[in-house]
């Protein structure tokens, strides 16, 4: 099933992200099956589904951490051409460092837990080639401020911070280079409700103020409903339904989506 690839379009221009027929298997397990999707500039696409539905696998492939068995992935950006799944290791690393940001559910995957918070953000800038200390410091500070991180704790290593603060450091690292695409993998899972609201609010502000294109994976339907413009529902590696966020929640068509939406408290 496709998201909008076949629908007539007269208003909006080209999609930023285009995935076509992406398939990934792990041994006998079909993790992702022929998934196609488009994400438009400034849009937030939410991906929902039960555990093992393939949503995080798809996100990891969009972050070029994993390569599918088949399918293509393009980003409509200057100097970025062709199927990104065919890029070599170095080109992938550079592209991810400069054009794509990611926030993981588990901060240990995204951060060096014993380095300072500002150092974590600066490391991202270093990979992209920035060497001037004053620029590194200023940009890291600005990114942390935009993520609403308390600046008096710049030197604190993430290991000493709360879960909500660790997510802010990850977010700062992800947006430090103003990426074209921000990927969020369960960014609020495991946080208590009040901290969750703070992180969601920060994300919404970033999206509105900077018009960042986002793809967010979550099993929390409230998070998706708050942030996403469109939703893709995955089950057993396949997209079973996709549509505008209000349509998916108010008039779900697929039996699985109905079950999912009606199960929400």
């Amino acid at each position: 099933m496709t998201l909008t690839l076949d629908a007539p379009r007269i208003v909006t221009t080209r999609p930023l992200v285009t995935l076509r027929d992406v398939t990934k298997t792990y041994g006998d397990v079909q993790a992702v099956t022929r998934v196609s999707a488009e994400v438009f500039p400034g849009e937030v696409l939410g991906i929902v589904g039960e555990s093992g539905s393939g949503k995080s696998t798809l996100l990891r492939m969009m972050n070029l951490e994993d390569t599918p068995d088949s399918g293509s992935y393009t980003l409509d950006l200057p100097d970025v051409q062709g199927n990104l799944f065919e890029l070599g290791r170095f080109a992938r690393r550079m592209l991810c460092a400069t054009k794509i940001g990611i926030v993981y559910q588990n901060p240990h995957l995204g951060l060096l837990m014993k380095h300072s918070s500002s150092g974590n953000v600066a490391e991202r800038l270093l990979i992209a080639g920035e060497r001037r200390f004053s620029v590194l410091r200023d940009k890291a500070r600005a990114a942390l401020a935009a993520s609403e991180f308390p600046l008096e704790r710049l030197d604190a290593p993430p290991i000493e911070l709360s879960g909500g603060m660790q997510q802010r450091v990850q977010l700062a690292k992800a947006i430090a280079l103003e990426p074209a695409l921000l990927l969020l993998d369960e960014p609020t899972t495991g946080l208590d409700v009040s901290v969750q609201a703070l992180v969601l609010d920060t994300l919404k502000r970033l999206q509105q103020d900077r018009n960042i294109t986002m793809v967010i994976v979550s099993h929390d339907l409230g998070v998706i409903r708050t942030l996403a413009d469109r939703v893709m529902v995955m089950r057993r590696g396949e997209v079973v339904e996709a549509g505008l966020v209000d349509q998916i929640f108010q008039d779900p068509q697929h039996p699985y989506t109905q079950q999912l939406v009606h199960a929400k408290l």
Binding site: A7, P8, R9, F40, E43, D229, R230, G243
Partner: peptide, 8 residues
């Protein structure tokens, strides 16, 4: 029948 993104 419009694309979701156009409706948005």
């Amino acid at each position: 029948r419009a694309a979701d993104v156009d409706v948005t």
